[in-house]
């Protein structure tokens, strides 16, 4: 199913950059932090079609990331890889924000203790911070994934809605409705509701604070 492929690829693609950004936003102070945080949040508040149009113009043959500027073709427009980019951009703010909250909930003193025990920064991050924040991070991933599954506006603008190639669950619902095929629309709707329901259920369960690993001492 195209939706699962696109959403999985989008989540994997943005995961590492999102976690690093979220950690930096949670832990350090630096010039332009608020600006960065605001820019990262934009896809959350902009109309998805605006993001899609922006991507379309960036990636079009003569755009700043287009074939003529780069000298090679990223081949993203009307392809499933383009859908991945669109879904990834739209899911990014949700992942960063949720992960940031999860990192903030980890007591920095635990990290400092790890450092005094001789672990370097990377080891501390991988062996202490990530495990301590794991519930919030899983919630971030699930929310990002479902956002990617549900993304429509930006995806359809740059990747179109080609059945079997770039048609996702969201664009299939739109197509079914365009044609007036209510039966198919209902079936797809039911799938969307089930996926969303399960995802929120799991994410809420993970996000509920547990004494053992919410960073409280």
């Amino acid at each position: 199913m195209v939706s699962l492929k696109v959403a999985t690829a989008a989540t994997v693609l943005i995961l590492v950059p999102c976690l690093l950004l979220a950690y930096r936003l949670a832990r350090s102070r630096f010039r332009g932090k608020r600006l960065l945080s605001t820019l990262l949040g934009l896809p959350l508040v902009l109309p998805p079609t605006a993001v899609g149009y922006l991507l379309l113009k960036l990636l079009s043959a003569r755009g700043p990331l287009g074939r003529e500027t780069l000298g090679f073709d990223l081949d993203l427009i009307l392809t499933w890889r383009g859908a991945v980019i669109a879904a990834g951009v739209m899911a990014m703010p949700l992942v960063v924000r949720t992960a940031q909250v999860a990192f903030e909930a980890v007591d920095p003193r635990l990290e400092m203790m790890a450092r005094t025990l001789g672990y370097n920064r990377l080891q501390t991050f991988v062996r202490f911070t990530l495990p301590l924040a794991r519930r919030g991070l899983l919630a971030a991933i699930i929310l990002g994934f479902t956002r990617a599954v549900g993304e429509f506006g930006a995806t359809v603008t740059i990747a179109g809605s080609i059945p079997g190639q770039t048609q996702t669950l969201a664009s299939a619902i739109y197509a079914a409705q365009q044609v007036g095929d209510h039966r198919e629309a209902y079936v797809l709707l039911a799938i969307a509701v089930i996926v969303g329901f399960v995802a929120i259920l799991v994410a809420e369960h993970l996000a509920r604070p547990h004494a053992e690993d919410s960073g409280r001492t």
Binding site: L56, L59, S60, R67, L78, T157, G160, S161, I162, A175
Partner: peptide, 21 residues
């Protein structure tokens, strides 16, 4: 190779973006 679009203006946007379309 058909890329179905929501309306004619969407068709134009796709054509403008890809030289091989």
């Amino acid at each position: 190779r058909i890329a179905p679009a929501a309306d004619v203006r969407a068709v134009l946007a796709l054509v403008e973006a890809r030289d091989d379309t």
